[in-house]
Structure formats: structure tokens, C-alpha cells
Amino acid sequence: MSENFFDLGTVDAPSGVLVLGMAGGIDQWRKLGRPLSERARTAAAGGGGHLRDGLSEAVALPAAEDRPLKVRAVTSPSPFDEEPTIATLEVGLGLPWRETTVRSVPLGDLPVDRCGMVVGDAAGLDAWTGWDDEPADGLADVFYWGLYADEAHACFGGERIAQYGIDGPYGWLDLPVAEAAARAAELDAWCDRVHGKGLVSSVEEHTDLHRFQRAGWRHPLRVGAIEVGGCQVLGIDWDQGDHSIRHSGERAAGQTYPVTLAADEAGETVMRWTIPPYDFDDE
């Protein structure tokens, strides 16, 4: 298994509390009541635990405040395209293992969020912006694709935007939000006038949810590092084909995977989220 080990980067936890959570719901905690940091701090004070409110879920646990925390993963082949996907996510917490009678402690379980997962400082993530929030930099990206994309490109321009090792849609990056909306509207009006249908456009404002997905466009496991609330966090996007085959339905369909605290080879505490490899023999 060691030959499939990937170093994904590091995160900071200056508040002393680390969170692994569903990216699509990080911004919802404060809208549902108490901020994520308050809930996480309570769970971490008891050694770590699972948090759930509505469709938002996370685990929170104590971590060292004064050093980068290494994140790494073991992979297994996806049943969608046999490309590597995360089978075990491991985060070093920078703390000694204090248990004397057990080698691991269960913290609960988490589904794989279709929007991705986030690892980062609990207090820093209070500043997380989701789809409905305003981008801090006032910028957005525009994408367009479809049957008449090449014809639209000849009329309006734009660049091929590479994503995940392949040529992605046409579009423009880092435009002021108003300009991005105007370009998308122009594309839509042109298609309605000339063809009626056959072109799709999308405006993605620079929320943290979009920024981490964009940061992972060139990573083999779709991992991207961004700064949120003054802390470095890692976002892990998921291939939609792999998610549909393995994780679709999430908690409602029983698609959840255990999170544990454990001791590593050096006697340090790590968090592990374990997703069983797909059993190709059951096909």
C-alpha cells in the first residue's frame, strides 16, 4: 500500500482545533445557529467527535497549534475510470498518542460530499464562503461549452481552461463579477438568437468553495490549498463519475465511512478517514 501513498500538503490549526468537513455545508453552520468553531471546540475538548446539523457534517479534534500538520492519502482505483481515488485520508495532529490500552478511537463517520471535503482550522473555517456568499475579491470565472462552443469561441473568444489533465470548457478567468455576468448573458442571448439551444454558460464567483476546486484542477487527486480566515486549508474535490458510482445518496443511502483517531508508527496521533476500496469482483 505504501507505493500509493500521496503527500497532499499541510494545514494550519492555530486555534488548536482541526476540522474535516463537507465542503458544501461549511458556510451553513453559522446560518444554522452556533458557529462551527464553537461546536468544534466543544467536541475537541472531549478528545474529538462528530458534528451534524441538517445536511452539514464534520468531525472535530484537538491538534497542535504551533506547526504545519501533514495531510496524506492512500489511494485505490475508481470503478468509474480506474484512476486513483482516496481510500484513506490521514492527518497528522502533532500530538502524542496518550491511550495506553487501545490503538484507535472511533469518532463517527462521514459521507463523501459531492461538493468535496475540507480539512482546516475550526476558527479559520468560520470565514468560509459558499455558493450563496459574496466573493471577497469581487471576481468570477466564466465557462461555456456545448454543441456550438467552437462557433461561440470564433465569435466571442476565450481560452480553453484545462481541468484535471484534460482540455476543459472555453472561458475567462478572474473577471469582475459584473463583467462575468455580462459575458455569460451575451453568450446566452447569441445562442437563443442563432440556435435556440446547444450552448451552456456558467458564472463561478470566487467563493472559497470555488477557489479550492479551482486550486485542485492540476492535482491528480483534485486537492487544492487555499487560505481561509488566515489559515491554510486543503480542499479535496471528488470526480463526479466516481461519486455517482460509489457515494451517491451519501448518508441517506448509508454511504458513510469511519473516522478514527489512531497512533502512527512514531507514536504520534493521526486522524484517519477510511473509504473501503471498490470491490471489482462484485460487479
Rank of each mutant, 00 (worst) to 15 (best):
V59A: 10
V118A: 07
L147G: 06
A73N: 06
P169I: 08
K31C: 07
H210D: 10
V102G: 10
G138R: 02
G146M: 04
S37H: 06
L187V: 07
L32K: 04
E38P: 00
G235V: 05
T129M: 07
K197S: 15
E90T: 15
V112Q: 03
I236V: 14
R67M: 14
V233N: 05
E186M: 12
L107R: 02
L32G: 09
W29Q: 09
L107M: 13
L221Q: 07
R98W: 00
P77F: 00
V102K: 12
A215F: 05
L32S: 13
G108S: 12
G120M: 05
E151Y: 04
M1H: 07
W190F: 10
V228Y: 01
L36Q: 01
D113Y: 04
V112T: 02
V105R: 15
C155N: 08
V259I: 13
G24W: 03
A263C: 12
G9V: 04
E151C: 09
G157D: 13
L173H: 10
L95G: 05
L187W: 03
V233A: 15
A149F: 02
L95D: 08
Y170R: 09
I245A: 13
Y170E: 12
A127G: 07
I236K: 01
P176K: 05
C115H: 09
W217I: 04
G48H: 02
I161V: 14
K31W: 08
T129R: 12
T260H: 13
G165C: 11
S201K: 02
E65T: 15
L199R: 02
E205M: 09
L187G: 11
L18G: 09
E179S: 14
L61H: 02
D167F: 00
P14G: 12
I226N: 03
A180E: 06
A73R: 01
W131Y: 13
A136V: 11
T269R: 10
V194P: 00
R183E: 12
E204W: 05
E250Y: 05
A13M: 06
D113W: 06
R52P: 01
V17M: 07
R34E: 14
A162M: 04
L89G: 07
K197E: 14
H195A: 10
A253H: 11
G49L: 09
R222K: 14
L187T: 10
F212W: 03
Q28N: 12
E57Q: 15
I226C: 07
R246L: 11
L8N: 02
D264M: 10
R72C: 13
W273P: 03
E90G: 07
G124L: 04
E265I: 06
G49C: 07
R160E: 12
E65Y: 01
E265T: 06
D113C: 14
V119F: 04
G198V: 07
Y144F: 15
W273H: 08
Q255P: 02
A45S: 12
D150F: 05
G108T: 07
L55N: 11
D188C: 06
A136M: 03
S201T: 14
A60P: 02
A140G: 11
V203W: 04
W238Q: 11
P169N: 13
A225Y: 00
G108C: 11
I86E: 03
P169Q: 12
P96C: 13
E204H: 10
